[in-house]
C-alpha cells in the first residue's frame, strides 16, 4: 500500500470530521431552512453576491450542500461510536476467548458464527423497528455488526500471544490473568484493533446510510446522508443532484476510512510484502 493513498484517506476523513465539527460555520444555510420558491434548483456556481446553492436544492428548497455538511455529524459520530463500541466489546471477548480457550472460546466462537450467519441488515431493521430509532439504538445495533471484526482478529492474535515466552514467564512469577490480559495482551493487539477500527468505521458509516435510506435511521428530522439519498431517489430523473451528492459524500468518507485502514495495516502489522 502506497503512503500517498493512506494520506489521501487521512485527508478525506479529516475533512469530513472537520466539516462535522464546524458545521454551523461551514454551512451557508441552515439545513432545515425551507424555501418553497427555490425548489429543486440545480447546482449554481454563478456570480457571487446573490444567494446561490452550490449543490442545488431539494424538493422543498433546502440547500443540499448545507444538509450534507450537517449530515456529516451523523455519519462521523455514528461511525466512530459504532466502531468504538464494537472495538470494546469485540476486543474484550476476543482476548478472553483467545487467552482462556476452552469453554470461553467455544461460547465466543459460537457467537461470532451466529453473528456472521445472520442476515445483518434484516436483523438491524427488525431491532430498530422494535426499539425505535435514535442515536443510541442505531449505534448499539451497528456495534452488533462491528464487534465480530474485532473479536475474530483479536482472538487469533491472543491465541498466538498466549504461547509466547513472555506470557508464560509472567505467569511463572504470579502475574494474574486480569493483569496479563490488560497489561500484556491488550497493548500487543492494539495495532490490529486500530486497523480494524478504521475499516469498521467505514462499514458503520455505510450501514448507517443504508438504515437511514430505509427509514430506520437516527432521526428523520436531522439531516443524514442516507435519508437524503432516499429522498433524492424519488427525484432522480428531475433533480440528479439531490441523490448524487449525498451518495458521493458517503462514498468518499468510506473510501477515506478504507484507504487509511489499509495503510495503517501495512504500517502497524508488517508481515510478508
Amino acid at each position: 500500500m502506497r503512503p500517498w493513498l493512506g494520506a489521501i484517506g487521512g485527508v478525506l476523513l479529516a475533512m469530513t470530521a472537520l466539516l462535522a465539527v464546524a458545521a454551523p460555520l461551514a454551512a451557508p444555510y441552515r439545513p432545515t431552512q425551507i424555501n418553497l420558491r427555490a425548489r429543486l434548483q440545480p447546482p449554481d456556481w454563478g456570480a457571487p453576491g446573490r444567494p446561490r446553492h452550490l449543490l442545488g436544492t431539494d424538493n422543498v428548497g433546502r440547500d443540499v450542500l448545507s444538509r450534507i455538511i450537517w449530515g456529516a455529524r451523523i455519519s462521523v459520530s455514528v461511525g466512530a461510536a459504532a466502531a468504538g463500541l464494537g472495538a470494546v466489546i469485540g476486543t474484550t471477548l476476543g482476548l478472553c476467548a483467545g487467552f482462556f480457550g476452552g469453554r470461553t472460546d467455544a461460547v465466543v466462537s459460537w457467537l461470532i458464527e451466529v453473528q456472521l450467519a445472520f442476515p445483518f441488515t434484516l436483523f438491524a431493521i427488525f431491532l430498530l423497528a422494535a426499539l425505535g430509532g435514535g442515536f443510541v439504538p442505531v449505534v448499539c445495533v451497528l456495534a452488533l455488526a462491528t464487534w465480530v471484526n474485532f473479536a475474530r482478529v483479536v482472538r487469533s492474535q491472543a491465541m498466538s500471544l498466549r504461547a509466547q515466552d513472555f506470557i508464560l514467564a509472567a505467569q511463572a512469577v504470579g502475574v494474574g490473568p486480569v493483569r496479563l490480559l490488560r497489561r500484556h495482551l491488550l497493548p500487543a493487539v492494539l495495532p490490529s484493533v486500530i486497523v480494524v477500527a478504521s475499516f469498521s468505521a467505514a462499514q458503520a458509516v455505510l450501514t448507517e446510510a443504508a438504515l437511514s435510506f430505509l427509514g430506520v435511521g437516527v432521526d428523520p428530522t436531522i439531516p443524514s446522508w442516507g435519508a437524503m439519498l432516499n429522498l433524492g431517489r424519488d427525484y432522480l430523473s428531475d433533480a440528479w443532484w439531490m441523490a448524487t451528492f449525498p451518495g458521493l459524500a458517503i462514498a468518499l468518507t468510506v473510501l477515506g476510512a478504507n484507504l487509511l485502514g489499509g495503510w495503517l495495516g501495512a504500517r502497524l502489522e508488517p508481515r510478508g510484502s
Binding site: 509466547q164 515466552d165 513472555f166 508464560l168 514467564a169 505467569q171 511463572a172 512469577v173 504470579g174 502475574v175 494474574g176 490473568p177
Partner: peptide, 19 residues
C-alpha cells in the same frame, strides 16, 4: 497464581522472549 512467584518463581532460558 499466588503460589507462582510468591512461593516458587521460575525463570527461563531466553530472557529476550521471556520479557
Amino acid at each position: 497464581a499466588s503460589l507462582r512467584g510468591g512461593f516458587a518463581a521460575m525463570i527461563f532460558q531466553d530472557p529476550l522472549t521471556a520479557l
